[in-house]
C-alpha cells in the first residue's frame, strides 16, 4: 500500500451499457511512480484512464486522484490521448495548440498572460518542438504531432502525466525517443502510460499493471511468460530484446 497515493481506485467496475469492461479493479499509484498499463485490445486500458480523468463515471467503486474526485483534480493532470479528438486540418498552429494547456490557469475570459506563454515555450523546448511553433498541425508528421500533444500536456504543469498509447502508429526510433523523454519527465511527475507493448515499456516503467477486464500488478522484473499468457489468454513466445 502506498503511503499517499496520487491515484487510488477501489473496487471499480465499469460498463458502457453492455458487458462489464472493468470488473473490481483496484490500483494505487504513488508519487513519482512510472507505471505502465498493458493488456490486449478492448481490455479496458483507455477506459481505466478516462475514469482516472473523470471523463467517465464508475458503475461501482471509488476513484480518487490527488485525494479528491477526478473532476476536482483533473486540472493537475496532463493528458495525451490515443486518438486526438480534433481534425488535423483545423486552422491552428503548434504554439496555439500548446497554449491550450494553459486554459483554466489563464486570466479572465481565458486570455493568456506572459507566464502562460513562458510555460508553453518551456514545454515546447522540453519536447523539442520549439522550432515548429509557427507550423500548422496539418503539416506535422505523426511523431511531431505526438510531441506537440505532450507539450500541450506539459503546459498544464501537471503533477500526473497520463498517456494513452503515445507511440501507436509511429516508428520504433521515435518510440524510443518519446519514452526516453518520459523517463526524464518522471523525475518531477508521476507518469501513467497505457500501452499494448509490454515488452517495450518494461524497459522504462517501474511497475506494470496488466489489465484484461480485471487487473494484476507486477514489478517489471516479475513479468514472465505465465503472466503474459494469463493476460492475453493465449500462448506467447518471449523474445528478449534491448533498446
Amino acid at each position: 500500500m502506498n503511503p499517499s497515493p496520487v491515484v487510488s481506485l477501489q473496487d471499480v467496475s465499469f460498463s458502457y451499457g453492455g458487458p462489464c469492461v472493468l470488473d473490481n479493479v483496484s490500483l494505487e499509484v504513488g508519487e513519482h511512480e512510472f507505471i505502465g498499463i498493458v493488456g490486449p485490445n478492448a481490455g479496458g486500458k483507455s477506459t481505466l484512464l478516462k475514469l482516472m480523468l473523470g471523463l467517465l463515471e464508475p458503475l461501482r467503486g471509488k476513484v480518487r486522484v490527488l485525494g479528491e474526485s477526478p473532476e476536482r483534480s483533473r486540472t493537475q493532470i496532463g493528458y495525451v490521448p490515443q486518438y486526438p479528438q480534433f481534425s488535423r486540418d483545423f486552422p491552428i498552429t503548434v504554439e496555439q495548440t500548446v497554449m491550450m494547456g494553459r486554459l483554466g490557469m489563464s486570466g479572465l475570459f481565458g486570455n493568456y498572460r506572459r507566464r502562460d506563454r513562458e510555460v508553453a515555450r518551456q514545454a515546447m523546448v522540453e519536447t523539442e518542438v520549439a522550432d515548429l511553433a509557427a507550423r500548422q498541425l496539418c503539416t506535422l508528421s505523426g511523431g511531431q504531432l505526438q510531441r506537440v500533444l505532450m507539450a500541450r500536456a506539459l503546459a498544464c504543469e501537471p503533477r500526473i502525466l497520463m498517456l494513452d498509447e503515445p507511440t501507436a502508429n509511429i516508428d520504433m526510433r521515435i518510440e524510443t525517443e518519446i519514452f526516453d523523454l518520459l523517463k526524464r519527465f518522471n523525475r518531477h511527475m508521476t507518469i501513467i502510460v497505457v500501452s499494448h507493448d509490454v515488452g517495450f515499456i518494461s524497459g522504462y516503467v517501474s511497475r506494470v499493471a496488466c489489465l484484461n477486464r480485471t487487473l494484476i500488478c507486477h514489478h517489471t522484473a516479475a513479468i514472465d511468460g505465465d503472466a503474459i499468457r494469463a493476460l492475453y489468454d493465449a500462448d506467447v513466445r518471449m523474445v528478449e530484446h534491448r533498446h
Binding site: 480523468l53 471523463l55 483533473r74 486540472t75 493532470i77 493528458y79 490521448p81 486526438p84 479528438q85 480534433f86 483545423f90 491552428i92 496555439q96 495548440t97 491550450m100 494547456g101 486554459l103 483554466g104 481565458g110 500541450r152 498544464c156
Partner: peptide
C-alpha cells in the same frame, strides 16, 4: 477555440 478544436481536452482544463 478550445471547444471547437478539442472538446475533451477543453473539459479536462476546466
Amino acid at each position: 477555440l478550445a471547444v471547437s478544436f478539442d472538446e475533451e481536452f477543453a473539459r479536462l482544463r476546466g
